[in-house]
């Protein structure tokens, strides 16, 4: 589904991703771990199409298409979703309106009819339950004044509604208490299907107790320095990153 080959990317003229290769197949969950500042969010943003990063080399193939050739909104319409590490506030625009606008854009792209606000309410009801969010949150401005946990849950709500093929969760677990973590992980698991895939960017092993990955990759200094199965996460938990960094020359 996703094939990243030797990807290089700059921000403000500085090289941050220094040759990343990663293949994700339908039905798989991949975890990307690594120290702060190693380029995890950069990778996530480049996949989603943030214009602030310049891709200087390599390719990303998604569903047989050249992802790097697509605008961010086209990627979303093709089923790519990024749960932001720092969700953005849009004052004055209700969560309900925003999410319905997004939902309808995706439907239009698939040649389906747009849904009206009443139909959308029905769709929302079930999804809100999934992330244990109160319906009143839908009438508040997008992320404005939300607590850290509410913002993260809101990202998962959006994911649940937009039903992506490829979801990238960027530290969705950071700053969550154990209950919120369980809710978020439960949401992700409930949405798992054989034809979609998830990339979970995380700092901590604890999320992986709830979302069991097929592969774990360690990203450091802009490169994937080690890949393994789910047991790699436990090893990292026990030993930290240092034992990997030095041999990799990071």
């Amino acid at each position: 589904m996703l094939k990243i080959s030797d990807l290089h990317a700059n921000a403000s003229g500085k090289e941050i991703l220094k040759g990343i290769s990663l293949t994700v197949n339908a039905g798989e969950v991949h975890a990307i771990m690594g120290p702060n500042g190693s380029g995890k969010s950069t990778l996530a943003q480049v996949i989603a199409g943030h214009p602030g990063y310049e891709v200087t080399g390599g390719t990303i193939e998604y569903d047989g298409k050249d992802l790097l050739d697509m605008e961010a909104e086209e990627r979303a319409q093709a089923g790519v979703f990024l749960a932001f590490q720092y969700p953005v506030e849009i004052p004055g625009v209700t969560n309900a309106y925003f999410l319905r606008a997004a939902f309808n854009e995706l439907r239009k792209a698939r040649g389906e009819e747009e849904v009206d606000p009443m139909e959308f309410l029905d769709i929302m009801e079930e999804k809100l339950k999934l992330v244990e969010m109160d319906a009143t949150m839908m009438q508040r401005s997008v992320n404005a004044g939300f607590s850290g946990g509410e913002k993260k849950r809101n990202e998962i709500l959006q994911m649940a509604v937009l039903a992506p093929k490829l979801a990238v969760l960027d530290e969705t677990d950071s700053g969550l208490d154990i209950d919120a973590l369980r809710i978020v992980a439960g949401g992700v698991n409930a949405l798992k299907r054989p034809d979609n895939a998830t990339i979970v960017v995380t700092h901590y092993q604890r999320l992986l107790d709830y979302i069991v990955p097929d592969s774990v990759h360690v990203l450091a200094g802009g490169r994937i320095i080690k890949s393994g199965g789910k047991e790699l996460a436990l090893e990292l938990e026990a030993k930290g990153y240092d034992w990997l960094l030095e041999p990799a020359g990071v």
Binding site: P51, V88, G92, E105
Partner: peptide
């Protein structure tokens, strides 16, 4: 902000729609 526009785009809205939405929110 570019970040607000990108956030909207990453949800499938094009830039024009994104700006409309952000400005409408501002003028609400």
């Amino acid at each position: 902000g570019e970040d607000q526009i990108f956030y909207c785009k990453s949800r499938g809205l094009n830039a024009e729609h994104a700006i409309s939405l952000i400005v409408a929110g501002f003028c609400k």
